[in-house]
Amino acid sequence: MLSWVVTFLVIALIAGILGFGGIAGASVEIAKAIFFIAVILFLVSAVVGLVRGRTRV
């Protein structure tokens, strides 16, 4: 999922250099949204892992 963030940031950088401000802005917003979704999913999985704990076999 973080590879998508890097991809959109690279697209934003290239579009910004070439003067396509609208595409660059949209790419940055998409990258930020995907990044925050990834962080939230990571935190949720970390909390679930801590709550479940380790089971003894």
Rank of each mutant, 00 (worst) to 15 (best):
G25Q: 06
V6D: 13
V39T: 12
G21M: 07
A26M: 15
A26Q: 08
I14F: 12
A33Q: 11
I11S: 04
F35S: 13
W4K: 11
A31G: 08
G25M: 08
G22M: 04
S45N: 12
A26H: 06
I11T: 09
G49L: 05
V6G: 00
I37F: 12
I14N: 02
A24N: 03
K32G: 04
I40H: 03
A46W: 09
K32M: 14
G49A: 09
L9N: 12
V48E: 03
R56L: 12
S27A: 15
F35E: 07
A38H: 04
V51S: 05
L41G: 12
A38S: 15
F42C: 08
W4P: 00
V48A: 14
W4V: 03
G25V: 02
L2M: 14
R52D: 04
I37Q: 09
I14G: 00
S3Y: 04
S3M: 07
L43K: 04
W4T: 05
S27P: 04
T7D: 14
F8W: 08
I11N: 03
V5D: 02
F42H: 10
K32Q: 10
I11Q: 04
I30P: 01
L41D: 15
F35Q: 09
I11L: 14
G49V: 01
V57E: 14
G19F: 03
G21S: 13
I34W: 02
V51M: 11
V44M: 11
